[in-house]
Every structure is written in C-alpha cells, then in structure tokens.
Amino acid sequence: MRAIELADLGRAYGERVALAGVTLTVQEGETLAVFGANGAGKTTLLRILATLLRPHHGSAKVLGHELPREGWAVRGKIGFLGHDPLLYRDLTARENLQFHARLHGVRFERVDAVLDAVGMSARADDPVHTFSRGMLQRTAVARAVLHEPQLLLLDEPLAGLDPGAAALIDPLIGGGTRVVISHDPTFRGDLALGLRGGKVAFCERGATVDDVRALYA
C-alpha cells in the first residue's frame, strides 16, 4: 500500500514560495529521507504531511486520505516530532503525556510504558522546564509515539542526544513508515529527497552521499 503520495505539491507564504513541485510515492514500511539546507522547505513539507499546513498546489495523499479535505482521518495516525517538543514547560513529563493520552484516547498504562522506553521513568514527575535538551527530546519522542502512529514524521529525531540515548530511541522510531529530516549525509532511507530553495534537487532511491553534500555546497 502507498503510505504517501504527493503530486506537484507546493506551498507559499504570501508571495514567497516555500515548496514547489514535489512528486513522490512512499510505500508502507519505507523511510523517506529529506535533505536540504536551512530554509529549503523541509519543515514546510513535514508540516503539510502532518496536516498542520494546507497545501496550496498539487495534491497530497497520506495513508490513503486526501489532504487537507480528509485531514481529520489522518490525525491520530501520525506521530509528529518537529523542532518544538510540544510539551508544556510547567507540567511534568507524565502530566504532559497524560494530556496527550486523553486527547488521543490512549490508556494511561501506555504513558508509563513509553516513559520507560525512553528512559525517563525516574524523572517522569519533574516539570519539563527542569529537563536538559536531550531529556526534552526523549520526552518529545515519547509523546510522538504515544498513540502508536502508523506514520512517523521526524525532524532530526536524534538531535541533542548522546549515543546511549540515541540507541534507546532508535527502536521506537525505527521500523515503520517514516519521513525523516536529517542533516547527516550518511543517513540512509529507502528514498532520498533533496530540496534546494523549495524545489526538488533530487528524488531517487539510489542517492549518494555526494548528492547530499552537494545540496549544502
């Protein structure tokens, strides 16, 4: 089954075109790796897929549903991890996750399970504003996978994590269908999308490290 189908997808902010002409298909279980310099349109693409932004041009189909018309059917099936951890700073990690569990209709046992999985059980009852960058990221990952999403949208998921924490997170965010924004040229996906100035520089299965490096040149 096709998890993501984009045809000539575009988005503008006023007159500034942030993304244009993205056409690709991601099969279920595959990883789409997105590369590009700052401002290349990576985040815009991710937010469109997460139903947080409306596409202005072309069409986007996620998990078999047309965006933005059927966005309601997609929400709840995607796990989104952006720059922002999307956690309230004055709530504890557990309260934050319980809040999201209520919104998603997930049982509270699952909250303890994911907190344990990201190694945050010991600090679960501390307010989020006392967390370090890495702990924040781990809690954010726990939030993103809380409702066992079918599709993960990840913006540099390992940013700010030490190798130990990265190893802990990896099984949680690996395996399923994913879109991963990365700045690591050696990162391998089934399909690689390179963006430059909102336009597609390459979109192929066999992109090399040199292809990716050329984006930042």
Binding site: A50, T51, L52, W72, R75, G76, I78, F80, G82, D84, P85, L86, L87, Y88, R89, D90, H100, L103, H104, G105, R143
Partner: peptide
C-alpha cells in the same frame, strides 16, 4: 500564551479531536 509559546496549538491540532 502557553498554547502559542509551548506548542500547545500544534499538539492539539495533531490530535483526532
């Protein structure tokens, strides 16, 4: 203010509610 500055809007919009 908390919704805007701490990502509450996005977190809410991502939920199927």
């Amino acid at each position: 203010v908390a919704e805007r500055e701490e990502g509450g809007f996005d977190g809410f919009l991502l939920a199927p509610v």
